[in-house]
Design a protein around this nucleic acid. Structure first.
Length: 562
RNA sequence: CGGGGCGUGGCGCAGUCUGGUAGCGCACUCGGCUGGGGGCCGAGCGGUCGCUGGUUCAAAUCCAGUCGCCCCGACCA
């Protein structure tokens, strides 16, 4: 029963003042959801229909790879989170019950599920195991933003795999990739699976599923055949013109010139002909001098991953003590280890001299200083992709799913072990696999909407068909529209029937705002010719259908829409 | 967590600087007209101006505190 006159679908002519992103504006305007507090959202009937369609696709594909659905509590004892060391996470909601016991609101469920598996699984015969749930997650976000894109409470599909060894994990991981690829395809998204930083989750590998859109919080580097989170992306460097080589480095006076721009301007060379020297203090290791090309930026995540340790910028006094005056630092003659980015290729660079107000020209890596070559620069738009795939493009994207190879990160602290064929106790090898249905919803709106409103793919649309009766009272149009509605219902079509006593403009603009794939309009003019009008929301294509056979014809048209 | 902005009928806003007892548009209700792109006319309902305290004869307006919301950045297991 979906008569609009009886449906709670509060549409807005104007977006609320606090909505910035496109999906935030349209989700509110189209009556899909309303905000209760910062990062807390209520789904209204139409929005929840979309959410449930996404959930259904996820369930079908997860079940299809042999995953089994469970449901775990959101309210969990703090103890297991302390055991894995995740109790310290700032984003974890913490509370006490009336007895004073420490509790948390779960942000994922590795601890809870691993705790159960530790008690129930004893033998290699019980493995592998792939369990999942669609359950509310809570996160004490520092800054919720952009409508449904970053909220404090949201439903997540979270799956966890339990294998006996890394090879088993690889197989399970590959199965999840297959399921994820199908899920995002079926949701009609433009998406990329990108290599990602494993971050503090630890583990041995991770991929993220990214949907490019303007409101995205992440950036991904794309080229034909290449996609990576910029946090870990690599590329060839764009060529730079270097000055002629010299027999030995030569001092160049650069009074007061402490920036790349100033030095390159004063010496008449491209910024890329300079070497930027960045002194950092590595945890438990001391100072290291990191070199990147003058026109490049250091990617701190790549450096951290290379070092395998945390680091910080050196302080001015540390630089002065070990190297020289800040702003004039270079690799020649220093006694600290030098890491040089691979993009520095050539035989004549400008570097700092480690003396005030002077640089060196004609510096040749290898001849004038020793170094370890590394890849630690941030890729830039226009860089040639590795392997000749064309130029890198950097686009904002929203993370709609991620998959992690966890290894023994959780099984060891929680004692999830099994006995192998030889009776030896082994820790279980785990993986975890997340998807945010709300982000799929928002990303779909972001990617497909036009100036009139949302454009749903058939797979996500709250209703397949939006039937509009332009008549009022009980004239012939009303009767025809009623009849078509009943026929569509009995044919099993999900139809929203706008039977309201409202103006034409309001009905048509609401239909365009809500964005169902096919709109059927029953109006006096065309009905007089024995026809009704059909419009495809995506393409804007207009069709006429015979009024007598409108339901069957509409279903046929619908089946041709993606 | 750092920076910025905003809280006045359901929504969008004016009024705040310069204190004098709250207004506009939309929406909503009723009546009438209209009936293919948010139409017209008329009559209405609806607000302790986020909250607390202070100054004052008098506070939406000035002062202090506090709560909430948005944006940028940082962070994001």
């Amino acid at each position: 029963m979906s008569r609009l006159s009886q449906t709670f679908l509060p549409t807005l002519k104007d977006p609320p003042a606090d909505a910035e992103s496109l999906s935030h504006q349209l989700i509110v305007r189209a009556g899909l959801a309303r905000q209760l507090a910062a990062g807390s959202w209520t789904y209204l009937p139409a929005g929840w229909r979309v959410h449930r369609r996404i959930e259904r696709i996820i369930r079908e594909e997860m079940d299809g790879i042999g995953a089994q659905e469970v449901s775990m509590p959101v309210l969990q004892p703090a103890e297991i989170w302390k055991q894995t060391g995740r109790y310290e996470i700032d984003e974890l909601f913490k509370l006490n019950d009336r007895k004073g016991s420490e509790m948390v609101l779960a942000m994922t469920a590795e601890e809870a599920l691993t705790w159960h598996v530790a008690r129930e699984v004893r033998s290699y015969r019980d493995l592998p195991l792939l369990l999942y749930q669609l359950q509310t997650k809570e996160r004490d976000e520092r800054r919720p933003r952009a409508g449904l894109l970053r909220t404090r409470e949201f439903v997540m599909k979270d799956a966890y795999s339990f294998d006996r060894d890394p090879a088993g994990l690889e197989r399970t991981y590959a199965l999840n990739i297959e399921a994820y690829d199908r899920i995002f395809d079926r949701c009609g998204l433009d998406w990329h699976r990108v290599a990602s930083d494993v971050g503090m989750m630890g583990g041995t590998g991770a991929d993220e599923y990214m949907a490019p859109c303007a409101a995205g919080e992440n950036e991904i580097a794309l080229a034909p055949g290449y996609a990576a989170n910029v946090e870990v992306a690599s590329a060839e460097a764009q060529a730079v013109e270097l000055p002629p080589g010299l027999e030995a480095p030569e001092r160049a006076e650069t009074p007061g010139q402490t920036t790349v721009e100033a030095v390159s301007a004063s010496l008449g060379v491209a910024p890329g002909a300079l070497i930027k020297a960045l002194p950092v203090i590595v945890e438990n290791r001391g100072m290291v001098l990191v070199l990147v090309r003058g026109d490049h930026r250091l990617n701190e995540i790549k450096l951290r991953n290379h070092l395998g340790a945390d680091f910080r910028q050196a302080r001015l006094e540390e630089i002065a003590e070990s190297l020289g005056p800040a702003g004039f630092i270079g690799p020649v003659g220093v006694s600290v280890p030098v890491l040089m980015d691979a993009a520095i290729a050539g035989e004549s660079f400008i570097t700092g001299s480690n003396e005030p107000d002077a640089h060196l020209r004609g510096v040749r890596p290898g001849r004038d200083f020793e170094f370890e070559q590394v890849d630690v620069r941030a890729v830039e738009a226009g860089d040639p992709a590795l392997g000749g795939g064309g130029a890198i493009e950097i686009v904002p994207a929203i993370e709609i799913g991620n998959i992690f190879k966890l290894g023994r990160r959780y099984s060891e602290p929680l004692g999830a072990t099994f006995l192998d064929e030889n009776g030896a106790e082994q820790p279980i090898v785990m993986g975890s696999y997340g998807i945010g249905p709300a982000r799929i919803l928002a990303a779909s709106v972001e990617q497909r909407a036009d100036e009139r409103g949302i454009v749903w793919p058939r797979s996500l649309a709250p209703w397949q068909l939006h039937l509009v009766s332009l008549s009022k009272g009980d004239g012939d149009e009303q009767k025809a529209a009623d009849r078509i509605y009943e026929e569509l219902l009995s044919a099993g079509v999900e139809v929203l029937y706008d039977d309201r006593d409202a103006g034409t403009g309001q009905k048509l603009t609401d239909a365009e705002l809500l964005g169902c794939p096919l709109r059927i309009v029953v109006g006096r003019r065309t009905l007089a010719e024995g026809e009704v009008e059909a419009q495809l929301r995506g393409s804007g294509e207009d069709l006429r259908l015979p009024a007598d056979d409108a339901a069957a014809e509409a279903i046929r048209v619908l089946e041709g829409i993606r």
